[in-house]
Amino acid sequence: MKVNTQLLSKNVGQQIINTDNINILDLDREEIINLFKSYGFLLFRGLENSVDTFTQFTNSLSKDFLDYTGGVFNRRVINGNATILSVNDFKDEIKLHGEMYYQQDIPLMLWFFCAHPASQDGETILCDGRQFFNELSSPLKELFSKKKLKYVGHLNKDAWQKQYKTNDLKVVEQTCIRNNLLLQINDDESIDLQYICPAIHPSRCGKYPTFISSLLPAKHRYKNTVFFEDNSEITDDIVSELNEVADRITTEISWQAGDILMVDNTRIMHGRRAFSDHQRDIYLRLCSPAFPF
């Protein structure tokens, strides 16, 4: 079935519109793939989707689903499927970020499903990391090109058991090795973690520099968890400029029930506005594309 679209923002993001009362599973797969590769994220709206159709649709375009092992937020499992997770650990704002960019093994693609929108606020925000890089001042482009980021964390025993879904430190150690995380195990069985990575990455085609990281939420929510690799501070002036760029180029998704959002996690940063409605219910899947990427 041919896909009807409209642009969500300048040069990035497309909205797939249901003009013929069709089923999402009948949409042209190759057209969806081509749009996704071109625009970075797609919003599927008005298709009367349920959790079951969300699961079927995402299964048809994805592989290697992750269960969020190593992730820093609490996620509620939906319908007993460990790869379908809630995102409502708390109601505060989350700054723009790439998903799980504090470790090496990131999901290449993200899916979101709106089971129940907030009565107001709680919009998901998105921006193109290519455009973000282009909007940076020359001094910041040079700074982030020269200096990598260092994420650090301390987890007590209860915290790492929850985050890594195990009570076996050997399993944690193997996970850290696979993710290029420096692990220190302390006498009280707490752990310290360290991960070094760039904030600027080449695009998949290698033609464009892309700014994508977990820097902004780390600075916003957690003290003393991200620095430059040489341990120098990421100053408030730097963060202010990054937030100013983010505010200028961000696209908002005001959720409607049944919406599905498909996101390229190698290019598009996402976040959300704060909300107060406890009934807001958005689900997430982390995966890789089941097509050449």
Rank of each mutant, 00 (worst) to 15 (best):
10 K>D: 12
15 Q>Y: 00
15 Q>N: 10
16 I>E: 05
17 I>H: 02
17 I>F: 04
18 N>M: 03
23 N>K: 03
25 L>K: 07
26 D>T: 14
36 F>Q: 07
41 F>L: 12
43 L>E: 11
45 R>F: 02
46 G>K: 02
48 E>T: 10
49 N>V: 03
50 S>H: 04
51 V>N: 08
52 D>A: 14
55 T>W: 01
59 N>F: 06
59 N>Q: 13
61 L>M: 13
65 F>T: 06
69 T>R: 14
71 G>F: 03
72 V>S: 13
73 F>R: 14
81 N>F: 00
82 A>S: 15
83 T>P: 05
84 I>M: 00
86 S>N: 10
86 S>E: 13
89 D>L: 05
90 F>G: 13
90 F>M: 11
92 D>T: 12
93 E>A: 10
94 I>E: 07
95 K>G: 08
97 H>V: 01
101 Y>R: 14
102 Y>N: 13
104 Q>R: 13
104 Q>M: 12
106 I>G: 11
107 P>I: 03
108 L>I: 08
109 M>D: 06
110 L>F: 02
111 W>G: 08
116 H>R: 13
116 H>C: 15
117 P>L: 05
123 E>N: 15
123 E>R: 12
124 T>M: 04
125 I>Y: 10
127 C>M: 07
128 D>M: 00
129 G>S: 01
131 Q>N: 11
132 F>D: 03
138 S>H: 07
140 L>G: 05
140 L>I: 04
145 S>N: 15
147 K>S: 04
150 K>D: 06
151 Y>M: 01
152 V>H: 05
157 K>Y: 05
160 W>E: 08
164 Y>E: 04
164 Y>H: 07
166 T>D: 03
166 T>F: 00
167 N>K: 06
172 V>A: 00
175 T>G: 11
176 C>A: 09
180 N>I: 04
181 L>W: 07
182 L>T: 15
185 I>Y: 06
185 I>K: 12
186 N>K: 07
186 N>M: 00
186 N>P: 02
187 D>G: 05
191 I>H: 02
193 L>I: 10
193 L>V: 07
194 Q>K: 14
195 Y>P: 00
196 I>S: 06
198 P>T: 03
198 P>G: 02
200 I>A: 02
205 C>I: 09
205 C>F: 09
208 Y>T: 14
211 F>V: 00
211 F>Q: 04
212 I>N: 08
212 I>H: 06
213 S>P: 02
214 S>N: 14
214 S>A: 14
217 P>N: 08
218 A>N: 11
219 K>V: 01
223 K>E: 15
224 N>A: 13
225 T>G: 08
226 V>P: 04
229 E>L: 02
231 N>S: 10
233 E>R: 03
236 D>M: 00
237 D>N: 11
237 D>A: 13
241 E>W: 01
246 A>S: 15
247 D>R: 03
247 D>Y: 04
248 R>T: 15
250 T>W: 02
252 E>N: 12
253 I>V: 15
261 L>K: 10
261 L>A: 14
262 M>T: 06
265 N>K: 05
268 I>M: 09
270 H>C: 02
270 H>K: 03
271 G>P: 00
273 R>P: 10
277 D>T: 05
279 Q>T: 15
280 R>K: 12
284 L>Q: 11
286 L>S: 11
289 P>Q: 08
292 P>D: 15
292 P>R: 08
